[in-house]
Amino acid sequence: MSKVLGKVAILYLQRTCACSGCYSDPIDGKWSAAVEAAEDRLHERAIALQAELGSYDPRTERAIATLIVPAQRVARQFMRVATEFPHSIRIISGTRTYAEQDALYAIGRTTQLNRSPVTNAKAGRSNHNFGIAWDIGIFSADGRYMTGATKADVTAYRNLAAMVKAKLPAIEWGGDWKTFPDAPHYQLRTGLSVAETRARFEAGKALG
């Protein structure tokens, strides 16, 4: 990072560092030596978790790096469990900005009208916006991305979730949702509503 970041990006960095226990100064969108030091601490904790819990493919690593520290720990625990699954698992996305969330929400509504909506969550209404959620992909032995379009794909996502939930109670699975179930989605279990999570994230308070 650098001082050339805009206010929105600095705010996000401050919130992420604060929720990770790395920053306690004002969340004001202003670059400072304290923000720079907090970013360094965040990176150090991420490296320590990688050393403790293992590293994975580059795409998974990039996605995990976007999460707050408590979620990074659980995501790496998830990947450790997932290595026991008969198919290859990768984390394919992690945190999204509010702007990215709104762009995703627009698909099938105001943009790319040939597609079905891919999310019901507007900006600030998805746990992806707060560094605690990630989406995964399952890949068959021949490298095929299992999209969920076939019965075998659906079964694979369900079987993976059953294995993960049995071993990691700190995880919630999107496939359990009653409305708009999302089989590739996992998140840190916080016991908070999305509104409560947003309020705590924006205030820089711990989420898990």
Rank of each mutant, 00 (worst) to 15 (best):
V118M: 14
A141L: 13
C17E: 01
L5H: 13
A37L: 12
R90F: 09
A133D: 10
L192Y: 12
K3Y: 06
N114E: 14
M79I: 01
N127E: 05
A195C: 09
A121W: 02
G94Q: 05
T197V: 05
R45G: 08
Y56W: 14
A71W: 02
V4G: 01
Y98L: 08
T16A: 10
E100S: 08
V74T: 10
Y98F: 15
D135T: 08
V81S: 00
F78G: 00
Q187R: 15
A51K: 15
A156W: 03
S140I: 04
D135S: 14
L113R: 13
A82T: 01
R96M: 13
P181I: 04
G174H: 08
L168A: 01
G124Q: 13
R15L: 06
D142Y: 09
E36D: 11
C22E: 08
I10L: 10
H43Q: 14
S126H: 05
S193G: 14
L207E: 06
A133V: 09
T147W: 06
L160W: 00
Q101S: 14
R189A: 14
T179M: 13
L168N: 03
P169C: 09
S32K: 03
T147G: 08
F180N: 15
A199P: 01
Q14V: 13
A99E: 13
L113Q: 12
E202L: 14
L168C: 01
A133R: 11
D153V: 07
L13W: 10
S88C: 05
I136H: 08
E172T: 11
V8E: 13
D153C: 10
V69Q: 10
R15I: 06
D25I: 02
Y145G: 00
S93I: 05
H87G: 04
F180K: 11
T150P: 00
L13A: 12
A33G: 08
D25C: 06
K30I: 08
L113H: 09
L160N: 03
F201I: 07
R59V: 15
L13M: 13
D182I: 05
D40A: 15
G175E: 06
A71F: 11
E36P: 05
V4P: 09
R96W: 03
I92N: 15
R189Y: 08
R59K: 15
A9I: 02
T119C: 10
G204V: 00
S24I: 06
L160R: 06
H185I: 00
K165N: 09
T119W: 11
R96V: 06
A18M: 02
K122M: 11
I10W: 00
D176A: 13
V8F: 04
A141C: 11
G148C: 07
K30F: 01
N129V: 01
P184T: 04
T95D: 07
D25P: 01
S55L: 03
W31N: 00
D25G: 10
Q187N: 07
K178Y: 07
S2Y: 01
L42S: 07
Q14I: 12
S193L: 12
A203E: 05
V164E: 00
R59C: 15
W173S: 02
E36Y: 03
D153P: 01
L113G: 08
T60F: 03
A162I: 14
E44R: 15
A149I: 03
T66L: 09
V164L: 03
T97Q: 02
V194R: 05
Y56P: 03
T110A: 05
N129Q: 10
R59D: 15
A37W: 02
G148A: 00
V35T: 12
S116A: 12
R15F: 07
V35S: 10
T66H: 04
G204A: 10
